[in-house]
């Protein structure tokens, strides 16, 4: 099975590795500051109702981010 290409496609409960961030500078800095940077393992804990945000864990930090923004995080194959 092919690995999901983006964080937003990662099934709930699954873990992937961040490959790159295709976001503007502001968002990239925020994501990196919260630990979401290339090489880090990220797990999707749950998805919000009504296409709500993702609840993810990266390192020792838990985050929520919108699906639109999670689509900007590419995962390593």
């Amino acid at each position: 099975m092919e690995a999901p290409a983006r964080l937003v496609d990662l099934p709930t409960g699954a873990t992937g590795t961040v490959a790159s961030l295709s976001a503007d500078q502001g968002l990239r800095q925020r994501l990196e500051a919260l630990g979401l940077r290339p090489g880090q393992a990220v797990q999707v804990l749950r998805r919000g109702w009504w296409s709500g945000p993702l609840h993810v864990r990266v390192g020792m930090t838990e985050l929520m981010l919108r699906r639109r923004d999670a689509a900007r995080v590419s995962l390593a194959a």
Partner: peptide, 9 residues
């Protein structure tokens, strides 16, 4: 605006 927030324990 993107929304990325920390969910503290």
């Amino acid at each position: 605006e993107p929304l990325v927030l920390e969910l503290p324990p």
